[in-house]
Simulated scan of single mutants.
Amino acid sequence: MTIHPHSTWIIWALMSAVFAALTAIFAKIGVANINSDLATFIRTVVILVVLASILAARGLFQPLNSITPRTYLFLALSGLATGASWICYFRALQLGDAARVAPVDKLSVVLVAIFGVTFLNEELRLANWLGIALIATGVVLVAWR
């Protein structure tokens, strides 16, 4: 079976889902006896070291002046949003069940669809919107006590 190069995104997305699930489980155990903000900091340091190692090993660093100010702006905004998300996520894991926190966190899928259509002019079909509605419904059902 040959996988079309434009279809490999689904493999990466599925691997992302697996690692995100493991993140929730490992983080829930990891925040049991530590401040959630300190836990987020430790996690971030690990990510920095791993990514720096990957970039160095693959020779993918590039001159900082070759990156446009617009790129820096949006990557900085993305970093701030990521940091805020992680801080909130770790605090939620400290207070709630991983099996309920992680699905609520994935409400971001619904928001990305709305933001993508609103701000990036992406188009979704009726079937896509039905899927988004089902995800939102699933989040409510999972979060419900």
Rank of each mutant, 00 (worst) to 15 (best):
residue 93 L to S: 02
residue 34 I to W: 06
residue 127 A to K: 11
residue 28 K to L: 00
residue 94 Q to W: 06
residue 51 L to K: 08
residue 78 S to P: 12
residue 76 A to N: 12
residue 43 R to N: 01
residue 116 G to V: 00
residue 83 G to A: 14
residue 6 H to I: 06
residue 56 A to F: 13
residue 136 A to W: 01
residue 87 I to N: 06
residue 138 G to A: 06
residue 8 T to A: 05
residue 103 P to K: 08
residue 123 E to Q: 14
residue 102 A to L: 11
residue 47 I to Q: 15
residue 49 V to D: 04
residue 49 V to A: 14
residue 50 V to M: 13
residue 104 V to S: 00
residue 144 W to N: 02
residue 48 L to K: 12
residue 66 S to T: 13
residue 7 S to T: 09
residue 44 T to V: 03
residue 137 T to D: 00
residue 28 K to Q: 01
residue 54 I to T: 06
residue 126 L to S: 07
residue 41 F to G: 07
residue 6 H to W: 11
residue 44 T to L: 12
residue 108 S to K: 10
residue 128 N to V: 09
residue 94 Q to F: 06
residue 105 D to E: 10
residue 39 A to R: 01
residue 104 V to G: 00
residue 70 R to K: 15
residue 29 I to R: 13
residue 91 R to K: 11
residue 131 G to Y: 01
residue 79 G to F: 00
residue 46 V to K: 12
residue 14 L to A: 15
residue 88 C to T: 11
residue 143 A to H: 11
residue 75 L to P: 05
residue 79 G to M: 05
residue 96 G to E: 03
residue 63 P to C: 02
residue 139 V to N: 08
residue 83 G to S: 13
residue 110 V to F: 11
residue 36 S to Y: 08
residue 129 W to P: 08
residue 86 W to P: 02
residue 82 T to Y: 13
residue 145 R to M: 04
residue 67 I to G: 10
residue 47 I to L: 15
residue 29 I to G: 05
residue 43 R to F: 01
residue 26 F to G: 04
residue 47 I to V: 15
residue 91 R to L: 04
residue 119 F to W: 14
residue 25 I to N: 04
residue 116 G to N: 03
residue 44 T to F: 05
residue 136 A to Y: 02
residue 88 C to Y: 09
residue 21 A to H: 05
residue 32 A to P: 06
residue 9 W to N: 04
residue 107 L to F: 13
residue 5 P to L: 01
residue 68 T to G: 14
residue 128 N to Y: 07
residue 14 L to P: 05
residue 10 I to V: 04
residue 79 G to S: 09
residue 90 F to V: 08
residue 89 Y to R: 02
residue 114 I to E: 02
residue 81 A to I: 02
residue 39 A to L: 03
residue 19 F to G: 09
residue 78 S to Q: 14
residue 15 M to P: 04
residue 8 T to V: 09
residue 63 P to D: 01
residue 141 L to V: 12
residue 112 V to E: 08
residue 68 T to W: 07
residue 37 D to M: 14
residue 56 A to M: 13
residue 90 F to D: 00
residue 89 Y to M: 05
residue 55 L to H: 11
residue 67 I to P: 06
residue 52 A to T: 08
residue 62 Q to F: 02
residue 1 M to C: 11
residue 26 F to Y: 13
residue 33 N to V: 02
residue 95 L to W: 03
residue 117 V to K: 11
residue 44 T to G: 11
residue 15 M to Q: 08
residue 27 A to Q: 03
residue 54 I to S: 09
residue 108 S to T: 09
residue 113 A to M: 10
